[in-house]
């Protein structure tokens, strides 16, 4: 794992029990993991009273360094023992290593999942609702009897921005859409077999 000197220095700062006491240490680690999962923001780092005794610049450096460390290790799916070894190399005590390891155990899957859907362009479909309607009459035609599917897609962009895509489709149009989706699915299966 390629980590810059700044990141390694920041991790080493976490081993300094005089500069960063246990309550501050726990608060930093907790905030780092929850910021990545967007359950907290960076400003929450300074909400803890214990943090006031720590130099702000050192605190920010340590925080950003550990965020990078989490992201880099999750990007390559670094295993628990390798993470522990790296932390040990940078002088962290066994109790602090255990504390960090527990966080990795708890949030590994969630962070990996979160990283896999991090997207800067297109929204993701998070929900699909459909309804089948039968139109019987209209102002123009006395007898219609036309089946129409209404599709409602709920999308999500980064920062939890939700959107809606709504459209109507005839049976033929819907079948065409289903065939195209199946075709895409087959292509994915083929490419995953190759890799």
């Amino acid at each position: 794992m390629n980590l810059s000197e700044d990141v390694l220095k920041g991790i080493e700062t976490l081993s300094d029990e005089k500069l960063i006491n246990d309550s501050v240490f726990k608060h930093i680690i907790d905030t780092c993991f929850l910021v990545i999962l967007k359950k907290k923001t960076e400003s929450d780092l300074f909400d803890n009273k214990a943090v006031s005794s720590v130099d702000t610049i050192a605190l920010k450096q340590t925080f950003s360094a550990f965020i990078v460390f989490i992201l880099e290790s999750m990007k390559i799916n670094y295993d628990q023992s390798s993470i522990s070894d790296l932390l040990e190399e940078h002088k962290l005590s066994s109790s602090r290593i255990d504390f960090i390891s527990n966080y990795f155990k708890e949030y590994r899957v969630a962070i990996r999942k979160h990283l896999s859907v991090t997207n800067f362009h297109f929204p993701h479909i998070i929900d699909v609702n459909w309804r089948l309607d039968l139109f019987m009459k209209s102002n123009a035609v006395e007898k219609l009897n036309t089946p129409v599917y209404l599709i409602n897609l709920t999308t999500e962009q980064e920062e939890n921005v939700k959107g809606k895509v709504q459209f109507a489709a005839t049976l033929d149009q819907l079948q065409d859409l289903v065939f195209k989706l199946r075709d895409a699915q087959k292509q994915i299966e083929r490419s995953s077999i190759k890799s």
Binding site: N129, L132, L134, K137, S138, N139, L144, V148
Partner: peptide
Amino acid sequence: FQWKLGVSIASNHSSQLNTPF
């Protein structure tokens, strides 16, 4: 101004709606 009379037959929540609208 256009209108249509229809019946909702089914949805992802219910297989038997039969609701006019």
